[in-house]
Amino acid sequence: MQHYNYFQYEKPNLNFEKPDRALTLGNTFPLEYEGYKNYVPTTPNNLTEKEALMWDIQKYAFVCNDLGLYLDLHPTDMKALKYYNENLEKLTKVKEEFERRYYPLTKTSKEIMRRPWPWINDFEGLK
């Protein structure tokens, strides 16, 4: 096992976008955002109840993924770890709610056991 001095790469005063805005922009660290021309990314409105819950899954999962990339290189950044954990906790909750109300998202979801083979229905990901 190799040892690295991670601390030399840590960034002080790291800030994070809120999950809604992070997914809208495709970006979690405000300093990294680079707009294109005058286009302003907008958060989708008039979502159905199901789509809104899916958006919540998407936004928390997005933040976890983006912070995950950063943490791969800065695994001891406590501020990033804390935000990661906060979002992971919320992600777990909204996923459970979605699966209970609509369909299991993965084949190893607990919901799979509660219904007769639900995997072939509701292929929401690919409408």
Binding site: L25, N27, E32, E34, T42, Y70, D72
Partner: peptide, 28 residues
Amino acid sequence: TDEVRMPLLFLRQREVVHFNRFKEMFDI
């Protein structure tokens, strides 16, 4: 339309972020 533009803007920004992570790894 925005329906097409928004996902493309999202994907474009992801390329920016990925570049930054690779660059960071390179510098390290």
